[in-house]
Amino acid sequence: MIALLIRDLRLAMRAGGGFGLGLAFFLLVAVLVPLGVGPEGSTLAKIAPGILWVGALLACLLSLDRIFALDFEDGSLDLLATAPMPLEGVVAVKAFAHWLVTGLPLTLVAPVLGLLLNLPGAGYGWLVASLALGTPALSVIGAFGAALTVGLKRGGLLLSLLVLPLYVPTLIFGAEVVKRGAEGQAVSTPLLLLAGITAGAAALLPFASAAAIRVNLR
């Protein structure tokens, strides 16, 4: 299991691995929005939570199709499926590796981008907290979508269409945490719901993903 995690991280860091792609995309979104909306501080502060969450979500989406498609193409997915580890574990580890490579860096740079978007001072902590709690769900749900589309040529677009609706609850509650946090209101309800979605997705979806992969490998 750990060997698989290390391999996936190493592959992501090497040439063409895609590490930093999501991060650069997130950065660009956060820079482009003020250019489009205008530099007015109060407007930006109002839309900052939503923009940051949508940006993080789309950045996560960018690298989803790589989770299983590359392993499928070069035959390693067949070999992993016959290896002495449960396919559910393989899925969970690969989703975790995806989070380490995309979700975690996004969470860490988000405060800097919050500054660009004039996020009110009280919101920074909640921005990091909500992303840290919510982005694992994005990776796990995304891995499920990737598992469903793994055998398809050009499955990337279909993957986006499948996964984006499933991201809606995470987006709503994640952005709500930041918005309420920035306005100084109580955040515990959306924060708990966000954590609940992540916990539920992480507990259930690896099984569904493994089942989808088994069907796709036939």
Binding site: L4, R10, L11, R14, E73, D74, G75, S76, T82
Partner: peptide, 30 residues
């Protein structure tokens, strides 16, 4: 199936890993 080692048409190699790293990964898995 747990007693079988399968070698398919595709080799399951990772192009950006070295020969040793590719093998060491499978050795760790098994």
């Amino acid at each position: 199936p747990e007693s079988m080692a399968y070698a398919a048409h595709a080799d399951g190699l990772k192009a950006t890993l070295t020969v040793t790293e590719n093998l060491a990964f499978w050795a760790a898995v098994y």
